[in-house]
């Protein structure tokens, strides 16, 4: 555990807190992509299947359960709970996620660590996480203007990815035999998807102003 990894996990947790607060306190899921949240639920449920047989630390196992629980709760609230379910707009949030899930499943089958069923599922979850934010980014793009809490949510997720990237660099130089090409590749792609958002986020928040983020 290093500081980058720890802060990365914390900002990941923060993103869940922001989103849960937004939809429970604000009673609205407007601007939030249910598609992205469903993808995250699939990602965590498939990657953390190994909760049943792998144990590396209490910290890890606890957070795995937290991530599955939070993403499931978010999906449940937006899909089934009133009044939130009535604020979700399926016409706006209509990214065809089958085009993300399909290719990631094929990639997981073909490119994985050692051709065991769990490694295939695990690789699938890594690939799917890399692109899971796309429906959310497309939704924001369509809306043009992004509500503050939503922009903080995406920013926290982006920070989590950036910090994980730094964690990998740190581990590469401080540990022997630390090599995970699949994770590095997918993680770099994933972080890259946030660059445009961060540019606009910075533009609207600089100088202490708290204007909503405007996307072209």
């Amino acid at each position: 555990m290093n500081i980058f990894r720890f802060l990365g996990d914390m900002s990941h947790i923060l993103s869940f807190v922001i989103l849960l607060l937004k939809i429970t306190q604000g009673k609205s899921a407007a601007g939030i992509s249910l598609r992205t949240q469903e993808l995250y639920m699939i990602v965590f449920c498939s990657r953390y299947l190994d909760l049943f047989w792998n144990f590396s630390s209490l910290y890890n196992s606890f957070l795995k359960v937290v991530f599955i629980a939070c993403s499931s709760a978010i999906v449940y609230i937006i899909r089934f709970k009133s009044p939130q379910k009535d604020t979700w707009n399926p016409e706006l949030d209509n990214f065809p996620i089958q085009y993300l899930i399909g290719p990631c499943a094929v990639a997981g089958l073909l490119i994985n660590q050692d051709w065991t069923p769990f490694e295939m599922i695990w690789a699938f979850s890594i690939y799917l996480e890399a692109v899971a934010i796309l429906p959310q980014l497309f939704l924001l793009q369509k809306q043009g203007e992004v509500e503050n809490l939503t922009s903080h949510y995406v920013a926290a997720l982006g920070a989590y990815r950036g910090l994980y990237l730094m964690n990998w660099v740190y581990r590469y130089f401080t540990e022997d035999d630390y090599l995970q090409r699949i994770v590095w590749f997918a993680g770099t792609v994933q972080t890259g998807l946030y660059i445009d958002f961060f540019y606009h986020y910075y533009q609207s928040k600089r100088g202490g102003l708290s204007r909503p983020v405007k996307l072209p």
Partner: peptide, 10 residues
């Protein structure tokens, strides 16, 4: 492939 990759990240 990465035989040594540890699954200790989230």
């Amino acid at each position: 492939y990465d035989g040594a990759a540890p699954k200790d990240e989230l």
